[in-house]
Design a binder for these strands. Sequence first.
RNA 1: GUGGCCGUAGCUCAGUCUGGUGAGAGCGCCGGGUUGUGGUCCCGGAGGUCGCGGGUUCGAAUCCCGUCGGCCACCCCA
Length: 411
Amino acid sequence: MTRFRAPKGTHDVLPPESRRWARVEAAFTDLAARFGYEPAITPIFEATEVFVRSVGEETEVVQKQMYTFEDKGGRSLTLRPEATASVVRAAIQAGGVSGVLKASYWGPMFRYERPQAGRSRQFHQAGVEYFGEAAPEADVEVIEFGYRFLEELEVPDVEVRLNSLGDEEDRKAYHAELVAYLQERLDLLSEEARGRVETNPLRVLDSKADVDVVADAPIPLDHLGEEAFAHFERVKAGLDRVGVPYVIDPHLVRGLDYYNRTVWEYVPTGYEAAQASVGGGGRYDRLFELLGGRPTPAVGLAMGVDRIILAMGERDLPRVLDLFVTYAGPPWKDEAVRLVSRLRREGLRVDIDLGDRSLKAQFRAADRRGARTAVVVGDEWHQGIVTAKDLVEGSQTTVPVEEIATWVLEH
RNA sequence: GUGGCCGUAGCUCAGUCUGGUGAGAGCGCCGGGUUGUGGUCCCGGAGGUCGCGGGUUCGAAUCCCGUCGGCCACCCCA
């Protein structure tokens, strides 16, 4: 085997496979701009405390999945397991949010765990954060954003699962009731769930091993305060209004402690895998305070890029070149290179095989490199024309040299 | 962190149980058929420390021990 490999739980993405990633990133960047989100660029590591305080001391992420290290100044730093904490920290550091701030991000996240399908130690998330808006329509907008993103990428059979956790005051009463329910049935619970009854009882709700016990457990939805209830009603109505279908999942709680009220996930139902969820989000009105900022309402989501690409399946790779220029033998190479340079300056995506290979080999390369069309620079050049071929249709014609760009754009 | 499966050509794998005839197939790659044409077809070619270390044996891809790595599931999450 090769001497050096990518570290456990990390993956390389090389051309042409990376075309899938480029497509997802382009779709995200475009959609975020259309929704009014602008990029936020934050460090890939933070003071460990930022994540402990925001994500939650008792969460799996903080308990066992953090890439924590000490730098040469003795500071405890952690590679970000998610980006929301960083963006909130950055907003607070910049003086807090006055009015509204809508930010998007794209980049690698890190969690130390045993890798498997759809789970890596380094994975990529694309997300948006909507700061400073308490209106339920903001939740609706963010949920719709994720839904349209998956729609645009044609991820099949996506289900939006929706729930509300209520506000902090609602949760106190609810917690007591839930803990009481669980403690009566301690012997029926799995070992993991048993441990969580004291530390993080909400997490028991989505435990796969305890579906039977949990089926009749009290749920947050039945304990919403007046305001949280009204908020949730308006979120649902808003989703109906913009045409985003959803199902209520009363056991959906999500793994990060900072959420309140609305939480949701995107799950491709046709895709058989344990790590099915391709994205999720929620409202986190308390997070700014948790990190020492002024109270600021906020809602956001994170989409898992790696999982989206998995769920998209083995569809044909997109074509990425407008034109491939071939030349009929070395005497025509200089003319062909000059043509390529000109067309690139005119804005076309153009490439060429520089190895003096046979035309057959050049056309093979054109196809493999993802070109839509090809032209041959050869004897016809003397008449001011080139042979032009549509590689998708297979049709061929001749085109005056000065009209190549026009012809390419028509195909 | 717990459990299961697996490391042989760039990729997917056969061969391992029952050790021994010159390490194979498909796909991919390169070339030719078509000295100016891809994606289909036909022909040819290149490419391998059988993960690594040790042991058993006249002889190890094959048996034993160790080690590293990959995949999958649990937990949890993107």
